[in-house]
Design a protein around this nucleic acid. Structure first.
Lengths: 116, 116
DNA sequence: TTGTTTGTTCTAGTATAGTTAGAACAATGT
DNA sequence: ACATTGTTCTAACTATACTAGAACAAACAA
């Protein structure tokens, strides 16, 4: 199953679906030209609503990762962005930093240390 | 003003209040034994609801950062590790950056952008 | 003791986001 | 023509965040 959901996660379902695709892209599991399963199919197989999947697909389209066409479904267009996951992680890190009250200077310091 | 709110932020108010305190703690602006202003006072001064402030205080208590006692208010007890997740994320980010060949300068640039 | 401060608890209302549901529609490949 | 698949619309439910007001309980101070 290409797209996975973690019921325990507090992240919105549509975000999780989008994240699954992004990760598959950055992992090379999905590449330009590949097709995503139809929204209705994903929905039933994950036991979630079609609209939720379509919202995720719309998100990915807005990010330029896929193209949506009727009857043709969702096709990977954007050269598999190898940094999709990096961006996601950076976003999460920034969110968490803000949440616990760590400022930018300290945050970059932490990242620097981990990177070394 | 010890506790600050960013009205533009999409983060919940109670999280922002808690983050303010955590930041003050990690900055050394607050230390063990110090007192936080009474919830009612913070509420009126920030023009938010008392319950919102008390929720933030409760959160901090659950994290073991402060103690709450009637009449005595909120007292800083200890600085638990509120950064476990931050460290984990930073580690993953650094790993991924190395994996896709992003150097430290660029990585900090990305983080900076996300943090803004 | 009496009074005041401060957290605790309760009910309740509003607003918004996420999710589900169902339906009709539009393009498009077979 | 037909079936598939995204598009759009309305509607409703749920959970969370926030606000509001009130009563209560502990604890310090005068």
């Amino acid at each position: 199953m290409l797209i996975r959901i973690d019921p325990a996660s507090q992240a919105p379902l549509f975000e999780q679906v989008a994240a699954s695709v992004r990760r598959a892209l950055s992992d090379g599991e999905l590449a330009k030209g590949h097709q995503l399963p139809p929204a209705r199919e994903v929905a039933t197989s994950l036991d979630i609503n079609v609209h939720t999947v379509l919202r995720a697909y719309g998100l990915l389209r807005d990010e330029g990762l896929i193209e949506l066409r009727r009857r043709r479904g969702a096709v990977v267009t954007g050269a598999a962005d190898t940094r999709a996951r990096l961006n996601t992680l950076a976003g999460e890190l920034a969110d968490e930093a803000r949440r616990v009250g760590v400022d930018l200077d300290e945050l970059t310091e932490i990242v620097k240390e981990k990177f070394a």
